[in-house]
Design a binder for these strands. Structure first.
Lengths: 239, 239
DNA sequence: ATATGACCCGAATAGTACTTTTGGTCAAAT
DNA sequence: ATTTGACCAAAAGTACTATTCGGGTCATAT
């Protein structure tokens, strides 16, 4: 289930990469920085990854997978279970805990730097494989966890706006007049439930099942990508 | 009530400035461009405005005032009157109609350019004079147009997120999978009303009164700023 | 009186030659 | 068999100059 056996060195490189790329951005982080922080030599990096871009993308995938699992765990731990409000409260909490994912979500050019220029960058067509958010909403509707009198596309878009606003707004509004994170997450969840959950509370269990299924799919997709990536790792017997 | 008598030349300059600054941004728009578009010579610009920054700010104030009036008109025209949903549907519609105000709202560095660097730029302390958004929400609560069991700061922040998301999201999501603007605005209004308006529908009339009062204050504030600005216009009899 | 545009000058930009950095390689060391 | 780090070429950065641009002025024209 988990992506595959993985060497210790690789793990350490990925961790070092996550920290440094998140803190200093793609451009300012050098391969040598990452290598040193991981306690290996620069040359070794190229034994594990094809290059800087590939290292970055491997780290990205790892982080996204970890983010998904944190999200799922938060959903499972949430008392109100399978409602949209709970689902997105969990997501926003996971997002708030993971600064790097905020960068990803925002496509922050200051940190992603030249990586975004790269013509074959990950964000270009990542969305393609995944079920779109409004498909998720539609599934939740079918399960009876979301009221049916709303257009799933609209719901999905409003949710996107809120999530995007959440990770971006502190660039415009100063922290001082923002509410406490917890109060805000609670508020968002309450409002979403009022707005999108059926008046009778809906079928929370069915909703939870849908969410579990979607996450299973999403995480499997990540694992697939991670394995595919590993398959074409540099190897001595190549060509 | 309206700001004051105003020369034709000035109006044309402000219009030209609005168009050019919105399209090409602060840095790429030259005084000469504006002058030519307004059909006057460059020198004349300095008979009406102290300089580029002042021209820009005068245009900004004019646009913000116009935006406020468009917003207010949309509120007045809205059937559901004084609810938060109607208020923000109206705002978002006005915002969607006015690309320049989107720029302002987003503090778009790409278009505002060097203007944002200026130490005495308008955005620095504009907020100071105005009632903050959560004060507005609190007033709506007192009037009975917004449910009282929610923290106004949280409500204000969620609303901010949505507004910010709306003007920014198209940089991340491609237009194709965004819903129709009208459907989306309608959805947002419905969402807000379900989430924030008292279950019995609340006191819409009182809400409307609050909104009118706030707008009156806001527009008066703009007029004050516009007049103050005009008072220290360059004049030949000056010291 | 009012408006104009040639003109001024500081600042931004483009051009250039040179230095440093850094992604990537590979012969040598372990 | 692994791992390393000196090494290389290319890219990025720097320092400097030349050139253009554009905000702002003002003598002149209307």
């Amino acid at each position: 289930m988990a992506p595959a056996p993985i060497e210790d060195r690789e793990v350490r490189l990925l961790e070092a990469a996550a920290e440094l790329f998140a803190r200093h951005g793609y451009d300012k982080t050098t391969i040598d920085d990452v290598a040193r922080r991981a306690g290996v030599s620069k040359g070794s990096v190229y034994l594990a990854f094809e290059g800087k871009q590939q290292l970055f993308e491997a780290m990205l995938l790892t982080q996204m997978r970890a983010f998904s699992e944190a999200w799922l765990a938060a959903v499972r731990a949430h008392p109100r279970g399978g409602t949209l409000g709970a689902m997105y409260q969990a997501m926003l909490r996971a997002l708030d805990d993971n600064p790097f994912m905020s960068v990803v979500f925002r496509r922050d050019p200051a940190l992603l730097g030249r990586y975004l220029q790269q013509p074959d960058n990950f964000f270009r067509d990542y969305a393609a494989g995944q079920p779109t958010r409004h498909e998720v909403i539609a599934m939740m509707q079918e399960a009876g966890a979301v009221r049916r009198d709303v257009d799933p596309k609209v719901v999905a878009h409003i949710i996107n706006m809120i999530a995007y606003g959440m990770v971006s707004l502190d660039t415009v509004v100063d922290r001082a007049q923002m509410p406490e994170t917890d109060a805000m997450l609670e508020g968002i969840a309450t409002f979403m439930d009022r707005a999108f959950t059926p008046e009778d509370g809906g079928d929370s269990e069915a909703g939870k099942a849908v969410i579990e299924r979607i996450f299973a799919g999403g995480i499997a997709a990540f694992d697939g990508l991670i394995d595919a990536r590993r398959a074409r790792r540099p190897m001595e017997d190549e060509r």
